[in-house]
Design a protein around this nucleic acid. Structure first.
Ligand code: ZN
Ligand code: ZN
Ligand code: ZN
Ligand code: ZN
Lengths: 138, 138
DNA sequence: ATAATTCCTATAGTCACTAGAGCTTCAAGA
DNA sequence: TCTTGAAGCTCTAGTGACTATAGGAATTAT
């Protein structure tokens, strides 16, 4: 049986975050010691590692909750789990597209001015004042 | 003199957001009508357009506040403004790098499973359970 | 004049945590 | 066994950039 601190060290998830995941229903309410401290077993360690990895991959809490629910029905088809992952991938790709547009505009703006001007003449300030100077929507 | 609603329509910034920007010190406190409603002039329209464009480019509120402050000293050198833009560009690039790593892993994971399995065999679930199956840190 | 619309302030909610206050329990050494 | 320091507990509030709602007042249109 692990204390919350040992669980934290083994998974790299901070103690308050573990308590937060319990509150959010990702971890089941832990057993308690006589003095009301949380005690964890191996299965909790595995579940927390799952949560952590899913978070590291950018999945949000409702998605993880659903994935955990699905993972408890080992004989069901995995279409829903695959769909969640695919939708997340699509969302990541959209974010990348959007950031690449920002990157292009910002790169253009930044390279038009080298800091050696007055504010009055600064291309950064002018470009921010006027989206018409931009080359794309963003 | 424009009402907050007309200012909103002309800039595409929602009414509560305009009030929020005032609270955050991006817009100066507007003049008021006899009945205490905000009244704006052309210069407010321009400043709000600046704020909006800067937000669309991903700059955060403290950065925009600083840029506005700088833009009021038209004879000063623009090095600080250029630095703010360059730092933001660097931050955007870092985000892109991180998201590309996520994209790679997610793409690999998703393409390993086509939904035609049981949860028990599902590669999505297994990959989430074990970062060791990943090809990179992310 | 009346009705419809817009405006006002103030408060709370979003997301995934993080920080702090104030208190209790645990583990280890003397 | 006693003491001390670390770690645990609950609860509340703060983060960023808004958004939503409530309850009321002002403005505009008919
Ligand atoms: Zn410049
Ligand atoms: Zn633009
Ligand atoms: Zn699958
Ligand atoms: Zn991984």
């Amino acid at each position: 049986m692990l204390s919350i601190g040992s669980l934290s060290k083994r998974t790299g998830v901070k103690v308050p975050t573990i308590r937060y995941y319990e509150q959010m229903g990702l971890l089941k309410a832990a057993e308690r010691s006589e003095g009301n401290q949380r005690r964890y077993e191996r299965s909790d360690l595995e579940r927390l590692a799952f949560i952590r990895h899913a978070r590291d991959l950018g999945l949000d809490i409702p998605a993880i909750r659903e994935l955990i629910r699905l993972s408890e029905h080992s004989q069901q088809p995995c279409a829903d789990a695959d769909r969640i992952a695919a939708e997340h991938l699509a969302a990541v790709r959209e974010k990348i597209v959007r950031l690449r547009k920002l990157e292009q505009e910002l790169d253009r703006i930044v390279s038009h001015c080298d800091g050696g001007h007055s504010i009055e003449e600064c291309y950064v300030i002018r470009a921010l004042s006027d989206h018409g100077l931009c080359e794309s929507e963003h």
